[in-house]
Amino acid sequence: MPSETPQAEVGPTGCPHRSGPHSAKGSLEKGSPEDKEAKEPLWIRPDAPSRCTWQLGRPASESPHHHTAPAKSPKILPDILKKIGDTPMVRINKIGKKFGLKCELLAKCEFFNAGGSVKDRISLRMIEDAERDGTLKPGDTIIEPTSGNTGIGLALAAAVRGYRCIIVMPEKMSSEKVDVLRALGAEIVRTPTNARFDSPESHVGVAWRLKNEIPNSHILDQYRNASNPLAHYDTTADEILQQCDGKLDMLVASVGTGGTITGIARKLKEKCPGCRIIGVDPEGSILAEPEELNQTEQTTYEVEGIGYDFIPTVLDRTVVDKWFKSNDEEAFTFARMLIAQEGLLCGGSAGSTVAVAVKAAQELQEGQRCVVILPDSVRNYMTKFLSDRWMLQKGFLKEEDLTEKKPWWWHLRVQELGLSAPLTVLPTITCGHTIEILREKGFDQAPVVDEAGVILGMVTLGNMLSSLLAGKVQPSDQVGKVIYKQFKQIRLTDTLGRLSHILEMDHFALVV
Rank of each mutant, 00 (worst) to 15 (best):
D245W: 03
D234I: 01
E34A: 09
I214S: 01
W54D: 06
R161M: 08
S199P: 02
S61F: 09
R164P: 07
T68W: 07
C165G: 15
W43Y: 15
A226M: 10
L136Y: 07
L105C: 05
I80V: 12
S227T: 14
S199C: 09
A38Y: 08
T53H: 04
P138N: 13
R190D: 01
T87P: 06
N228A: 04
A186S: 04
E131Y: 08
I92G: 05
A155E: 02
C272R: 09
P2Q: 12
T235H: 02
V206A: 09
F112W: 01
A253F: 06
V180H: 03
L106H: 08
H232W: 03
E104I: 03
K72A: 09
L81W: 03
S23V: 04
P229G: 05
A69L: 02
A155K: 03
M126C: 06
K83A: 10
I219F: 05
S117E: 05
P6N: 09
A130L: 05
S147F: 01
L184D: 00
R121P: 02
R190S: 08
S50V: 09
S27G: 14
T141F: 13
L181I: 06
G274T: 02
D47A: 08
D133W: 12
D198E: 09
L101P: 02
I44D: 10
A114Q: 13
P88A: 07
S61Y: 13
L77K: 07
I84D: 08
L124N: 10
D198V: 02
G116H: 07
R209Q: 14
D249Y: 03
C52F: 03
N149T: 01
K30Q: 11
A130H: 01
T135V: 08
K25P: 15
G263R: 00
T262W: 03
E131R: 02
K269E: 04
I44K: 11
D245A: 02
S202F: 06
V10G: 13
V10P: 08
T13R: 02
P145I: 02
V178Q: 04
D198H: 06
I264Q: 00
L77Y: 05
A195T: 10
H203K: 03
E29T: 12
L210G: 05
C103N: 05
I80W: 02
T260V: 07
T257V: 01
L101A: 03
I142R: 01
E270D: 13
P41R: 07
G85W: 06
